[in-house]
Design a protein around this nucleic acid. Structure first.
Lengths: 239, 239
DNA sequence: CAGTGGTCTAGACCACCGA
DNA sequence: CGGTGGTCTAGACCACTGG
């Protein structure tokens, strides 16, 4: 069975495209059964492994749901995911073709209060590193990065040169990431934050708080404050 | 080579776990080369297809980068994605074990102004549907859903019963989703919005605007306003 | 029980990269 | 050119689901 090699699109992509078309045109509706692998194998004249790859990838993308022993159905709600990445703001700004600069507001060792101690699973009063940086895009403040770092995860954090690297990059390089959780909310800036950002204390801000785990340690806890009028998270999903 | 079937974990998962461990413990650093498929095949005594599947999935997850003809390397920044889903707020509230209720504030046909006409690619003055609902969680207002709908995509939108379904669900069922884009920002509520949510006009809100495409039509444009003090988007990633 | 998806093999040919 | 990943096959055995 010498398959023509002039095929512009891989066979499994053609199968995926077929299924996607049936779904997006409404021919197959959420809850409807998708033909079994055997049926698709017949229809396309492909081996089962190829059919399996196509349908499996559609399941990963959230378009269909597979249940072993039962079958494949069109997913109920199209679970469409956007990539909210842990990115280096330095690179993000450069990618937009703008200039990135940073002001180091604070770099110190502090004693953990109760909340910090719980976050890092340390005893109260333990030493943790603290840094505050203000990031600018073409000279305009767009982010305050208020960060606490676990000395056990990055012992030399205080001697890093934050004019040539960013805390995000430094930590990604020195404390490999294994886990992270974040939360995005809206709130008003503190007086000091408003001053750093050059905005009114009544101007709403986007605040992302994030904590990261590296191996056995909670490595870092950070509060990122963005002026609401100058920054937004946006994304796009596509079937 | 009769592989023992008592294996608790699939072979490809074991390969993935091995690679993940090397990365997360810092043994292999970003930019380092990952052993070739042939090498891993030797090391694990598995067929190439199985090795290929393991490494391919790691590439999809963003942990490694593969270049045909060149090789596989550990990815530069761990591209960690959270699932920001188009979800039905009804289900979201129920999942938290709370009660969901809704107040229908407005349901009408309006004439498109310039901005709406551009959004929907209709002529100015064309009819579009407009609905405003306030969603409550255990009696507390948590979201205003201010939505415009293209009649071409959902002609009977006005006659839907929004006490038994939600606009999100109705549209997902009647206008299959093919594309969506969103933006999240922080801003202050309008006077009317503040009143609906029972908050001060000076209380910051999270605002998500989203437009969805169904087939050939821009189906819907929606502005979701969340009280910043009662709602946050959160998520978690794991290596 | 028959039908489904989940996994795996031992080959194969191809496209691409770098030396 | 040899080594890499990208794709594909024609089988196979297994675990799970449902009637």
């Amino acid at each position: 069975m010498p398959r023509l090699t002039l095929n512009p699109l891989p066979a499994y992509e053609q199968v995926k495209a077929f299924v996607k078309t049936q779904i997006s045109c409404g021919h197959w509706r959420p809850g409807d059964a998708v033909p079994s692998e055997a049926a698709l194998q017949q229809q396309f004249g492909l081996s089962r492994m190829t059919i399996n790859r196509a349908v499996k990838e559609l399941a990963v993308e959230g378009l269909v749901t597979r249940i072993q022993g039962s079958g494949t159905v069109v997913a109920q709600l199209h679970r469409i995911s956007s990539t909210l990445a842990i990115r280096d703001i330095h690179e993000e700004v450069l990618e937009r073709g703008h200039e990135h600069s940073v002001h180091l507001d604070r770099l110190e060792t502090v004693r953990a209060n109760l909340a910090l101690a719980q976050t890092f699973k340390l005893r109260q009063g333990a030493k943790v590193f603290h840094s505050v940086l203000v990031h600018h895009e073409d000279g305009v403040a767009i982010q305050i990065e208020d960060r606490y770092v676990n000395p056990a995860a990055a012992p030399k954090y205080l001697s890093a040169d934050f004019s040539s690297t960013t805390p995000t990059r430094y930590l990604l390089e020195h404390a490999p990431l294994t886990e992270a959780s974040y939360s995005i909310e809206a709130s008003l800036p503190s007086a000091h934050e408003a001053q750093c950002l050059g905005i009114q204390a009544s101007d709403p801000c986007l605040v992302m708080t994030r904590s990261t785990v590296s191996g056995a340690h909670v490595a870092s806890w950070v509060r990122l404050v963005y002026p609401g009028t100058r920054y937004s998270f946006s994304g796009k999903f596509q079937l």
